[in-house]
Structure formats: structure tokens, C-alpha cells
Nucleic acid binder design. Structure first.
Lengths: 208, 208
DNA sequence: CTTTGCATTAACAAAATTGTTAAACACGAT
DNA sequence: ATCGTGTTTAACAATTTTGTTAATGCAAAG
């Protein structure tokens, strides 16, 4: 059972740490608070992860991978028409973030707090983004020539999509108290927002 | 000159503190680091502001006011047509944030870190937002009836505009390294982004 | 049953960070 | 000149937070 127990305790700490780091960031997080939330002594936390730094890196690695995946999964899609691929991609991306609403804010804050640290990560992402971009841009150009949509820079379109989808969640706690009934029912609001984001982008790219 | 000197030192500390708090947040900021950046001993900082907390509040108050203003100023506008008012508002809002690019992230993080604290602030903002909203929604409804634009919920439109404008700056450090030449020239990119945001919203509200 | 190896605890140590104080200082007003 | 007021400094105190250690437990393998 020692193997089982260890798994559980380590897992408990990781889960508590994830929650703490995602909401409070590295600086705001306290190892004692994490240990308490996990129901272990704080010496236990250091026993498994040595330092706060190392514990944090475990979380960060996971989360960055997740963030990159969410972007890829949404647009590295099969062989529908480009317009449908974009429409579907927006929805997928939105849903992905809805499942991890704290993720974007965490990633952005981390990168701003310690940019140096993520150089390796960038080279990986850069390659992925470049290939998606080239692919998407080519399809957009072709579709534009056929009059199926307007000509547009794929990266600009991409940024617009990310803006609309991500901001909804990043700013939710800020907007919720000042938007009244519109946001009273979270699920209803998110559903409406999802549709609105798709609609907004579709209007933008639809052939005139 | 004692009066002059005091102003300057206090001001030096405030300026350094603003920079530190905006980039690192309350938890990441160090009073010693602020004092050093301001070129004063850290005892000096405590002499003028007593605690880190109080120094922080001075900054936060300013910044929240600024944030609220930016939203108001952009859309509480004169008597052009509603479509033109929206078009102009997007640009104004974008420019305002371009002048204070760290502001939105700071405000959002602060509110998430300590929601309780901003209850009073909310009641003030709530009133302002409500009146702008009612006003805008009425004009939109009228314009929609006249066929000048599509029918749309003003708050949804509002969120879309904020998303597009704010995200550009919040995520800049994250996107810059993975977007290649598109973002190489910051000014050129921002100008393009400003136009794109206006274009995107105009497409969304233009009468079909 | 004892050895071995990891798990656990409590108490402690070290470092970093915030906050204080007492003494020196500058300088204008009386 | 000196008194008073607010400024400045250096040294120190307090607290918080991270990290360590030595002793103990516990369970499986020999």
C-alpha cells in the first residue's frame, strides 16, 4: 500500500498546489497553505518536492502544455471547408477554455513575471504556430480567391478569436458584478457568449 | 526647499511603486525593491507611507479610477449617429489602453486576488455602466428599427469591444515571441490591430 | 524477528521581508 | 544662536515563509 499511499499524498499536494498557484500565482501562493489544503504537514510537501520552485514547475509544465494543446486542437482540424473549420475551431477553443477558465490568466501572468524562463517553450510553440499559420493562410487565400470569404491575415484573425474567447473568462470576475442579469446565470451567459464570438468572427470573414 | 524635496521623494517612491506593483502585483512587489528603484532608503518608504499596504492603496485607487474613466470616456460620447459613436468609441478605448497597457491586467488580477475589497467601487461603477448601457441600448434599438444596424445586446457588444481591445495588450508579451514579423514593429502592429478591431465590430453591427 | 527503505512528524534553522526606533541632520522662524 | 519641525540614516526587531533534520513509524523482504 505504500506505493498507493505515496501516489495519493503526492497527488493531494499537486492538486492543492495547482489550485493555489492558479488562483494566487507563484508569489501569492504559500507552501504552508498548500500543505494545509492537501491535508499534509508542510514538511511532507518539502519531502516530496524539495522546494516551492520545483513544485511550481511541475504545475507550470502541465499547464503550458495544456494551453498550447488548446490552441492546436482547435484549429489543426480535418478537411472541412476553411470557413467551417474556423467556425468549428472557435467553438472548440471556447469550450477548451471553459474547462480551464483560470488557465489563460495564469499563463500570461507567469510569462510576464519571468519571461527568461520560457525561452525553450517558445521555440517549440513557435514551430507549431508557424505551421498552423502557413496552412491556414494558404487555405484562406484560396477560399478568398474563390469568393467564399474575405482576404485576411490568418494571425490577425487568430488574435481576434483568442481575444474574444479568452477575455470572457479572464475578465469574468471583473464584469460579473457590473453586468447585472446578463451574467446572473453563468451557463446561459457562456452559451450566449460562445454564439456571439462565433457570430462576430463569421461576420468578419463572410464574403461581402 | 524642504517642501519641494518632500514632494519629490514622495513622488519618486510613488512612481517606483506604481511600476513595481503594476508589473509584479502586490505579492510579487518588494518594498525594498521599490525603495531601491526610487533611490531612497527603505526606511524612507515606511516613513512616508507607513506600510506596503497603504502605499499599494494609493496606487490602486488611482489606477481603478483611470480604468473606469477609460471605459466611460470612450462611450459616453456626443451626438453623432450611433454607428459612428461606436466606431469612435472603439478607437478611443483602444488609444486609452495603449497609453496604459499594464492597467487591465493589474485591475483584473487585483479584483481576483481580493474581491471583497472592491464592493464599494462596484456600486459606483454599476451605476455608471447601467446608465451608459441603457442609453446605448435605446439608441441601438432605434437605429436597428431604421435599418442602420443590426439588433444587438449593448452589453454583449461592449464585451466584444473590450475583449478585442484589452486582450491585445494583456497578451502582448505572450504573443510577441510566437508571432514573428507580424508583431516585430510594435507601433505598426498596434495600428493594424486598432483598425482590425474597429473593422471586426463594424462588420458585426452593419445592417445586412 | 530483524533489517531495510521509504513515509511521517515535530521541532528547529535560515532567509527574506516588513516594520520600528533613536539619533543625526537640515533649515527656517523666533 | 537656538529652537522646533519635519527629514534622513543606520541599525535593529518582528514576523513570515521557506527549507532542514533527527527521531520515529511502519510495512514488506529476507
Amino acid at each position: 500500500m505504500s506505493e498507493q499511499e505515496k501516489q495519493t499524498k503526492e497527488q493531494l499536494i499537486l492538486t492543492a498546489a495547482e489550485q493555489e498557484f492558479l488562483t494566487k500565482g507563484y508569489d501569492g501562493a504559500r507552501t504552508t497553505s498548500i500543505a494545509k489544503a492537501a491535508g499534509v504537514t508542510h514538511a511532507m510537501l518539502h519531502y516530496y518536492f524539495r522546494t516551492k520552485e520545483q513544485l511550481f514547475e511541475r504545475i507550470v509544465d502541465d499547464k503550458f502544455r495544456l494551453m498550447a494543446q488548446s490552441i492546436l486542437a482547435a484549429f489543426g482540424n480535418p478537411n472541412q471547408s476553411i470557413v467551417e473549420r474556423i467556425r468549428g475551431g472557435i467553438g472548440l477553443h471556447f469550450d477548451y477554455i471553459a474547462d480551464n477558465p483560470q488557465l489563460p490568466r495564469f499563463v500570461i501572468n507567469e510569462i510576464i513575471a519571468r519571461p527568461e524562463r520560457y525561452d525553450i517553450l517558445y521555440s517549440r510553440m513557435r514551430g507549431i504556430v508557424d505551421s498552423i499559420y502557413a496552412n491556414l493562410q494558404r487555405d484562406i487565400d484560396l477560399a478568398a480567391e474563390r469568393g467564399e470569404m474575405v482576404q485576411i491575415d490568418a494571425r490577425m484573425l487568430f488574435i481576434s478569436i483568442m481575444s474574444l474567447n479568452i477575455f470572457t473568462f479572464v475578465a469574468y470576475p471583473f464584469m460579473e458584478p457590473i453586468m447585472g442579469e446578463l451574467m446572473a446565470d453563468r451557463n446561459a451567459f457562456l452559451q450566449a457568449r460562445r454564439a456571439e464570438n462565433i457570430n462576430t468572427i463569421m461576420c468578419r470573414i463572410k464574403a461581402k
